[in-house]
Amino acid sequence: MKEILKHEILEFHPDTLIRVREACGLDAPGRMEEAVGLLRDWAAKQEHFLKKDFDPIFLEALLLTCKGSVEKAKIRLDLMCTMRTFAPELFVKIHVKKDFPQFHKVCKALVVPKMTEDHYRLGILKITGCYPTLFQDLFQWVVIMNEYLKFHDYSIGHICLVDLREANIFDLVTKLNPIELRNTFTLITKGYGTRIKSINFLTPSKTVEAIVSLFKQVLSPKITSRIEVHKNIEEIYERVPKYMLPKDFGGDDISLDKIHDAWMEVHSSEEYIMHLKEMQKAGRTNRAGALRSTTPCSECPAPSGHSTSISLFSSFKTGLKYYRKSNNSFICSNLYSLFDCLTNQGRRIF
């Protein structure tokens, strides 16, 4: 990519492309093209990938999330495909207008047009109501948004603003499944590679601590250390410039509803729906092939008796070690069950 194409919603600074590449160590002449070529050639050789011809723009975006490391990008691409097998429920819905009949009535989840001076995006989630499958719909909507951003955005990371001022937080907590929360964040941060600069909850209610506590139980300390709770909008202004915020939040941009409507049109385009359909079938991983892969990776030692580090073995072993340390027996048992389901020998390998 030699320049960022103009977008109907997203805005960029004149120096965004070069500054983002500099931050990721990919600004040297020819460095990005070389890295994309290496990653493309590697993907084409993976027998367990049902889709091998990934778009260069997508691969470039993936490399940016890995700060230029081709080896880390391989792991990330493998995980992104594998998650389509592990958590297929995150990829079912693709028609944003007809597949989310209740969601848009009580929830707005979007990325605002402008970016910060240091090239971060602002994502806003505003919840005003609840229903039994709210979070299942929300997580699928987040996947649709991230899938789109991988092809159209160019930024360093994201600031998240969660507005719960009009929500019944206790009701939300009862609907939030920790396993689904973990799976979604794994896909977004480890698969799509979204860098989260901060998560800002906006509500005067003390019951928000119940949600924060749930986040801390299932998400990594690195992410949970970036969670902040704000009692009023004035505190948000200390974290997010007002020129980025919708006028509903006292900012200078158009209203949240207008931004939401614009994203609805973009996500409803025939071109994007076809893309999602293609990724539904092409992104899935042949599990047996993934376990047989012998592609070496210098950054991630393979388990004993297996030459593959870009594999399910490493991912589950690392995850299990983390959750053992946290004494979370519920998640440990789920990791074991999922691994056994895929290999029928999970406990023996561990």
Score class of each variant (00 low, 15 high):
I159W: 04
D153I: 12
N183W: 08
H306D: 14
I211G: 01
C341K: 15
D78N: 12
A28K: 15
F58E: 11
S329V: 11
G68V: 12
V218K: 02
K98C: 15
V142A: 02
D171G: 10
D153M: 08
I127E: 11
N334T: 06
I223Y: 00
P101D: 15
T82N: 06
N286H: 12
E147S: 08
R165D: 04
S329T: 15
A109D: 01
V70I: 05
E33K: 12
S314H: 08
N200S: 07
A302Q: 03
D15N: 13
V208N: 07
F249Q: 02
V92Y: 00
T82W: 00
P221K: 07
S314N: 09
T203A: 11
V212C: 04
I124A: 07
E60Q: 10
S155W: 10
L5C: 03
K197D: 05
F170P: 10
R84M: 04
I124M: 12
K325W: 07
D340I: 10
E22N: 10
K98Q: 14
G68R: 00
T85S: 07
L62H: 05
H275V: 09
H7S: 11
T128F: 00
D340V: 01
E33Q: 13
K190H: 12
M80S: 13
R121K: 08
I199L: 14
L59Y: 05
F139V: 03
L161C: 13
R76I: 02
T133Q: 06
F170V: 04
L342N: 11
L79R: 08
F339Q: 03
V173G: 01
P14I: 12
T184Y: 05
C107S: 11
H104S: 07
S309A: 15
A28P: 03
S314R: 06
S155I: 06
G157F: 12
A44K: 14
S298I: 09
V240R: 04
C341R: 15
L122I: 14
F91V: 01
Y154A: 07
A44P: 04
P241S: 09
T194W: 09
E147Q: 08
A61R: 13
L214H: 09
G289V: 13
K114L: 09
F313N: 14
K216F: 01
T65D: 05
K206Q: 09
F215K: 03
C130E: 10
N146S: 12
D340G: 06
L291F: 15
R31D: 13
T308P: 10
I124W: 02
E8Q: 14
M264N: 13
G251P: 06
T82K: 04
T318D: 10
H95M: 15
G37W: 07
H306I: 03
